[in-house]
Amino acid sequence: MNNTAAIPAAFAATLPQRARIAALHEEDEDTRTFVFRLADSAPALDAAHPGQFLMLSLLGYGEAAFSFSHLPRAGAEPGTVTLTVRRVGSLTQALFACEIGATVGLRGPFGRGFPPDGAERPTVFVAGGCGLAPLRSAIDVHLRERPAGIPVAIVYGARTPESRILRASLAAWQAEPDVMLMEVIERPTIGWSGRTGLVTDFVREAVRAIEAERAAICGPPAMLRATADALVAAGVAPGAIHVALERYMKCGTGLCGHCYVNARYVCSDGPVFSYAELGTLPDAFIGCGSPPC
């Protein structure tokens, strides 16, 4: 424990909370799910919403933002934090080198997640690649909170069958009543007999099948707008399409300036925005041609 007794409360409150890696699960070569156990109780983290994020700190490597892939609200054990992390930079590289028991720091939760209402409305979830991780907690919370018989569609796009992450969740959703899971593979390999193409090719079918009234999207930047447009074309109102944006973040609290999109901060005004709001933020989709995650 840190000795923070003599530290003014306003400063002590800024410290990352100490946590240890309690479990690890390889999703694919470069994606791993980490379960962290907090050293002290953290009611704010226990109460986090799907789509919110936290800052993970590794001393010597800095901090980076991650969305929750599982949450106490979705059935995870209180006092734990679950993140599904893709190895893309120096901090994630260092995190992948950590073993069970290693200490990290966690700060959060931050931001505005997916709207908590709407469990009674048929909803389509569209995820691309590692975008399934933040959406997983949204889907699980939705499934727990929806009234019986309200249908859900999940459209998940992955590059290859092998690169699909969170397979246990995929299997669990498949087994749920009134859940339509559509896995879409961009580059099928031998043995894949399911859907092939891009998620956008299947959005209309999903919306029709469940008469969807709302949607949530998470994925690489290039996919977000195309998917939102496809949802609108299929009849979902822009205000009912919730898009999780990603930006480089250094503070998480609206101070460092790194995450701004037009006059909004992704960290504190988002990261989830409705597509109607994004219509007023022309910078949201600049640079979407650059490599996806």
Binding site: S57, L59, G60, G62, A64, R86, V88, G89, T92, P220, P221, E246, R247, Y248, K250, C256, G257, H258, C259, V261, D283, I286, G287, C288, S290, P291, P292, C293
Partner: peptide, 27 residues
Amino acid sequence: GGARARVWDSCLLEGFQREASGHHPAP
């Protein structure tokens, strides 16, 4: 040991918003 510090940055630097994934909102 070590220290974590805030250091002035500039939004006019190329890497200001470049993400680890390569996505760049102001290329």
